[in-house]
C-alpha cells in the first residue's frame, strides 16, 4: 500500500504540495479533485517518485519508497500520465511495454505476458485496435491504449491522471465501471478527475486539493453537503436518485455565466 506522510514538493521554486498525508487503500477508488493548478498531477508524480519531495515520507508497503528500485516500484504502482507521447508503434506493442517491469534478461515475452496483454486490451475495450499504429488512432483510442498498458502492468496500485480526457460520456462511464471492478479485485485505484458528477459517482473517497493543500478528504456523501465545492468551483452540486442510484449534476452560479 502506498502512503504519503506530510509530503511537500516544489515545482519551479514554488511550493506545489504542502504537508499532504494520504493513504491509497486497497479495494478503494480514491478520486482527487481540485481547481486547475491545485497540485493534483504533482501529487501523483510525487507519490510515484517522479517528482522529488522536499519534505515528508512516502511509504510503499510500510517501507520508504527510496528503498525500492524503479523496477520494483513499477511492479507495485502503475501510472497513466496526463501528457503522453504518440510513439511510432502499434497498440499491441505499447501494451506489451506494460510487462517491462516483470521481464528478466534477455527480454522475451512469455505466453503468460501475451495472455495478460490480451486481457488488458479486452478490459480497456480495444481488442480490435491491437494491430493499429498509435498514430492512426483518435485521442480517446490512444487514451485507452495507454490505459491498457497500465493495466498490463498488473500492479496493486493504479494512479491515473485525467484518464477520461478525450473520452465521450459512454466511455467515461465505462472507465468509471472499470475502476470499480479493479477496486473490487483489491487494487487501490486513484483517479484525477475534473468531472465532478463522475467523481462523486465513482469514488469511495474524494480528496480535494487547493493551492497544493489537502483541504478535504471524505466520502462523497459527506463532501456533497459541504459548501466548499461551491466556493472552489463556482457551482452547486445536486443529485437525484433513480434506479441507477444517485445521479449527480451541478447548477452553475450566476457570476460564472458572465
Amino acid at each position: 500500500m502506498l502512503e504519503l506522510c506530510n509530503v511537500c514538493s516544489a515545482y519551479g521554486g514554488r511550493e506545489a504540495l504542502s504537508e499532504i498525508s494520504l493513504r491509497f487503500e486497497p479495494g478503494e477508488v480514491l478520486v482527487i479533485i481540485g481547481p486547475n493548478g491545485s497540485g493534483k498531477s504533482t501529487l501523483l508524480r510525487t507519490a510515484l517518485g517522479l517528482q522529488p519531495k522536499t519534505a515528508g515520507e512516502i511509504l510503499l508497503d510500510g517501507q520508504p519508497l527510496e528503498q525500492f528500485s524503479p523496477r520494483q516500484t513499477a511492479r507495485k504502482i502503475s501510472y497513466l500520465p496526463q501528457f503522453r507521447n504518440v510513439p511510432d508503434i502499434t497498440v499491441q506493442r505499447l501494451v506489451m511495454h506494460g510487462r517491462f517491469p516483470h521481464m528478466g534478461y534477455p527480454r522475451r515475452y512469455t505466453a503468460q505476458d501475451r495472455k495478460i496483454v490480451a486481457r488488458a486490451l479486452d478490459r480497456a475495450g480495444i481488442p480490435d485496435l491491437a494491430a493499429r499504429p498509435i498514430k492512426s488512432l483518435s485521442g480517446g483510442q490512444r487514451q485507452k491504449a495507454y490505459l491498457a498498458m497500465t493495466l498490463a502492468q498488473e500492479s496493486e496500485t493504479l494512479l491515473l491522471d485525467e484518464p477520461t480526457t478525450y473520452l465521450d460520456v459512454r466511455h467515461q462511464l465505462q472507465l468509471a465501471a472499470l475502476a470499480r471492478v479493479l477496486a473490487s479485485e483489491g487494487k487501490a485505484v486513484v483517479l484525477v478527475l475534473h468531472e465532478l458528477p463522475l467523481a462523486f459517482r465513482v469514488a469511495d473517497r474524494i480528496a480535494l486539493l487547493d493551492g497544493g493543500r489537502l483541504i478535504a478528504l471524505a466520502v462523497p456523501e459527506a463532501l456533497f453537503s459541504d459548501q466548499i465545492l461551491a466556493e472552489l468551483f463556482g457551482v452547486t452540486l445536486r443529485r437525484v436518485r433513480d434506479e441507477g442510484g444517485w445521479q449527480y449534476y451541478y447548477s452553475i452560479h450566476a457570476d460564472l455565466e458572465g
Binding site: 508524480r45 524503479p70 511492479r75 502503475s78 503522453r84 507521447n85 506494460g98 517491462f100 527480454r107
Partner: peptide, 20 residues
C-alpha cells in the same frame, strides 16, 4: 534496444515502467 523503445514513450512513462 528495449530501453530505447521505452524512452520514446516519454520520460514519465518510461520511469513509471521501471526504467532508470
Amino acid at each position: 534496444a528495449p530501453q530505447m523503445e521505452l524512452l520514446a514513450l516519454g520520460q514519465d512513462t518510461a520511469r513509471s515502467l521501471g526504467l532508470r
